[in-house]
């Protein structure tokens, strides 16, 4: 799943895909703005057929937490 997440994130921020690890912080390590987070949430909803409201996305701080959220809600 990490590969799919990398693909999604790389559509929105200019980072080396290798830096997108489970421990990477979405805001500080990957420099994602609030708008980027919303866009990623929308694409993740489409890709994984889940619901990821903004309020939940705001509480997700790392790539690993995002993966866990998808696994739990899939």
């Amino acid at each position: 799943m990490l590969e799919q997440i990398r693909e999604v994130i790389c559509n929105y921020v200019d980072v080396d895909p290798e830096t997108i690890t489970a421990d990477a912080s979405l805001r500080s390590d990957l420099s994602m703005s609030s708008l980027d987070l919303i866009n990623v949430a929308v694409e993740i909803e489409d890709t994984f057929d889940i619901s990821l409201p903004n309020s939940d996305m705001q509480n997700i701080t790392t790539v690993g937490e995002l993966i866990t959220y998808i696994e739990v809600n899939k």
Binding site: S34, L35, I38, V42, N54, S55, Q58
Partner: peptide, 10 residues
């Protein structure tokens, strides 16, 4: 306002 911004941006 921030929450509203997130909603309307969708």
């Amino acid at each position: 306002m921030k929450a509203f911004q997130g909603d309307i941006f969708r």
